[in-house]
Design a protein around this nucleic acid. Structure first.
Lengths: 337, 337
DNA sequence: AGCACTTATGGAACCGGTTCCATAAAAGTT
DNA sequence: AACTTTTATGGAACCGGTTCCATAAGTGCT
């Protein structure tokens, strides 16, 4: 239907060899100015664009980065994806997106994507690989960077979630609170990632340091959907001796908490302090106090790490980038009345 | 470093021809059961996986769908992307993601991506192509589907934004409002897409029908970022004879409006009614009345349209899917006191 | 038995680039 | 002038699949 010229057509018309055309395409210095111009003219005339697939096959490089993330629902994941996308826009690498909504799909992706023929590099976000996966990854020979996972065997970008949990809780303690609840993702399910567990550890650690006894009933687990969290929080706030402060393990959880309080007519921050985690976009206009982690930047850093590994041929020892956490004080936390 | 077997290695080891191996790989019926099993055994033994790039080159198909969207910031775009991603997860097509944050980048993408060698099909979301683009698209011979753009020359999925604007405004009129403002993206910039313009038309139409004069000062333009819209809205609400109802052209705009009202101590919906557009995730927990458009579904429908076009070799006439709009009454609109 | 028709199979040619080796022409050296 | 070195260039071989044509073996029919 449409005629697509090849490098051979260009060569014929410009009366040069195919090697010369290829050299012009790749800016090889060993082409005379006259020839180069002639070839360029023909390329222009035929409206020729090199077939990327043929290029990939012969050069053995895909010019592609794959990213695997658990879903596109969580704002924090989307924010990381934005960072990756933005870092990649300057390069001429394409981004192939895979979302692993189920365990089976994840298994499938982990088994098929890491393959030199598929991508030159892979980013895996917020999914801790098993030892089996790690072995397979290493066999594949494809550079892989983990984001939001601390795994010493691979390059990774991470934050210290234990400290994050600790400073969040400490912030509430500093405000005079002692009845502090913690709402997080279900911990200890297959899909749950270490971050939640570590934030819980930090929470417990801060309590311990302050001499506050950990109250099992004050740890509530549920997926970060407003409706779910809202109901869990309502139950929690209706108990006698309800908490005066809540540490939400993500801003998404915090949103549910805020709406629960609103529906119960409980004033934030006068009657209830709430601190979140992430500092997603919504946090700002919700005026939510939170522990900020650099989401967008994590995408950038991941690409940096990946590219630097892709450039050096042989695998050096894994590197890691630790990102800083910071409390952003806004309007949802206040001293205990 | 890592030995990657090819189809020829498999052929040698199984003592068959390469053609036979290829036939086994592609489930061709004309391979005897004995041979098939022998080949499969060797494939297993060598841990052979066919190189997708080689396959693409020789078969002339990329097994890839590209999606081009204006950004990953807008929740409605992300929701559409989710729909696409989900529809694609069942197929064995990979999704390549391009975000066109600037006009130059968009131009670059529109010129390079539509190429048979790049993708078997392309989805373009919320970006109206120019006539030049359309011509180039058609020359490329790649099936293209537009989402959220009404363009008769191409397959597309769309909603009637004029009607959307009309029913939103009518809803406010029905509640007794006559001082109704409209907040939207800047209209008539290069990047703005027709949707906003049409919602404005619908807004005007509803006013006209109700015999309300269009007040230029009541049409406010700004990008849908909470901070920007908040300030614009504050200015608007401080004017004498301020509106008693606001039609926000997107839920993202509506969020800014809600926060402006909150800061000014204006009660929603008692003193101010607000209706949004889109029904993004946040709308539910903000209890925002809005015009729902099927965002996630638009991604699904786009893929359906694309696949059906990809299957039939020759371009029939462009088809379109019109999605329905629906008012979701929640808590931010009420009768005029 | 002889002939036509299936059924399996091998492998060359091909997809459209890149790379590398061979070679011709130009420039530099003594 | 003879020889070495450098610079440009052509094109075969290659990347790893798919496709198609040729051919061998098997089956059925008269």
């Amino acid at each position: 239907m449409t005629f697509t010229p090849t490098i051979r057509d260009v060569a014929r018309k410009a009366e040069v060899g195919i090697g010369t055309v290829s050299r012009v395409l790749n800016n090889s210095p060993s082409v005379s100015e006259v020839t180069r111009q002639r070839v360029l003219d023909v390329i222009e005339e035929l409206n020729f664009t090199p077939n990327p697939i043929a290029r990939r096959l012969s050069s053995g490089t895909t010019h592609t980065v794959a990213i695997i993330l658990p879903n596109l629902t969580s704002p924090s994941l989307v924010e990381r994806l934005r960072g990756v996308q933005s870092a990649l826009a300057d390069s001429d690498y394409a981004l192939v997106l895979y979302s692993a909504e189920t365990t089976e799909r994840l298994e499938e992706l982990f088994n098929t994507i890491p393959n030199k023929a598929n991508a030159d590099g892979i980013l895996i976000v917020s999914i801790p690989p098993t030892d089996e996966h790690l072995e397979h990854f290493s066999k594949s020979g494809v550079p892989i960077v983990l984001i939001d996972v601390k795994e010493p065997q691979l390059d990774h970008v991470f934050v210290d979630d234990t400290i994050g949990g600790e400073i969040a809780t400490q912030h509430l303690i500093d405000l005079g609170h002692t009845n502090i609840a913690f709402i997080s993702d279900p911990i200890d399910t297959l899909f749950s990632f270490g971050a939640m567990k570590n934030r819980l550890q930090g929470y417990k650690k801060a309590l311990r340091k302050a001499g506050i006894k950990f109250n099992k009933g004050f740890h509530v687990e549920g997926l970060p959907q407003a409706e779910i969290v809202k109901n869990l929080t309502k139950d929690l706030l209706r108990t006698p001796n309800a908490p005066t402060a809540i540490f939400a393990a993500s801003d998404a959880h915090a949103i549910g908490v805020i709406y629960a309080a609103r529906e119960l007519g409980i004033h934030i921050p006068k009657e209830l302090s709430v601190i979140g985690f992430d500092d997603i976009r919504d946090a700002e206009y919700l005026n939510l106090t939170t522990v900020r982690q650099p989401l967008f930047e994590s995408g950038h850093d991941g690409i940096d790490l990946l590219f630097s590994t892709m450039k050096q041929q042989n695998g050096n020892k894994p590197r890691s980038i630790k990102q800083d956490l910071e409390i952003i004080r806004r309007g949802t936390t206040a001293t205990l009345q």
